[in-house]
């Protein structure tokens, strides 16, 4: 039941479900945003806009970005054209390391069809002159990420429950602690998913389905 059509950046979710579920769903955790741009003033301006809301990291080159990347990063704002390692190289590294962060590609180049192959989550056209636009983008990515992670987990648990129900007799299920805890986790997750889904607008959902139906 895996999705053959899923874009590469989504695949890692299943591999670090448990940790990701915690970082993304606990309201107390401040999300971490990594800003990458070789033009220092731009990077610093973005950092200033986002500092109040998020844990902010900055990198002034692709290789610095690679150093700063780890599982704690939720969203990365990534300049596409940089001298040493380009944004696309950093993207490759993110996929290679199976990191779960959401990527907004920031570029002065107008998006063309070639970008569809790159595997990112949002495209911001430079110059980004408005703090609200940036915050909006980060919020959107965090919202989608939360939904996606919870959904992935929900589907995995639903599969597991169904597999047990197929193999075991009702009496065996009745006696199984694993089955009982699966059921309660599913019910709990279902309620949380419902909360998350309430915040998703039609655009978020189009993105949610885009990779699957093309």
């Amino acid at each position: 039941m895996n999705r053959p059509g899923a874009s590469p950046h989504r695949i890692p979710h299943s591999m670090s479900e448990s940790t990701q579920t915690e970082t993304d769903t606990e309201a107390s955790e401040t999300p971490t945003v990594l800003i990458v741009d070789d033009e220092k003033p731009i990077t610093d301006a973005y950092a200033k806009w986002l500092e109040g809301e998020y844990e902010v990291r900055t990198a002034y080159s692709g290789s610095e970005a690679v150093d700063q990347l780890d599982a704690a990063v939720d969203v990365i704002l990534l300049d596409r054209r940089m001298p040493d390692l380009s944004g696309e190289d950093v993207l490759d590294e993110i996929h290679a390391r199976k990191l779960t962060c959401r990527v907004a590609l920031v570029s002065a180049v107008e998006p063309d069809f070639d970008i569809l192959e790159l595997g990112f989550d949002a495209y911001l056209e430079k110059p980004v002159s408005d703090a609200d636009e940036l915050v909006e983008t980060v919020e959107t990515l965090l919202r989608r990420s939360t939904y996606d992670v919870q959904m992935q987990r929900f589907l995995a648990l639903a599969n597991k429950k169904a597999a047990l129900e197929t193999k075991k007799s009702p009496e065996e299920l009745e006696a199984s602690d694993e089955y009982a805890s699966l059921r309660s986790e599913l019910a709990d997750l279902r309620a949380r998913l419902s909360d998350t889904a309430t915040r998703l607008d039609d655009d978020d959902l189009r993105v949610e389905f885009r990779d699957r139906t093309d």
Binding site: M1, N2, R3, M151, L205, E208, F209, R212, T213
Partner: peptide, 20 residues
């Protein structure tokens, strides 16, 4: 029309909208 995974997510959203 759609693979199982997509159908599952789609139905989740659909059921959520119906409930809302």
């Amino acid at each position: 029309y759609v693979d199982f995974d997509t159908a599952f997510r789609y139905l989740h959203i659909l059921t959520h909208r119906v409930e809302a």
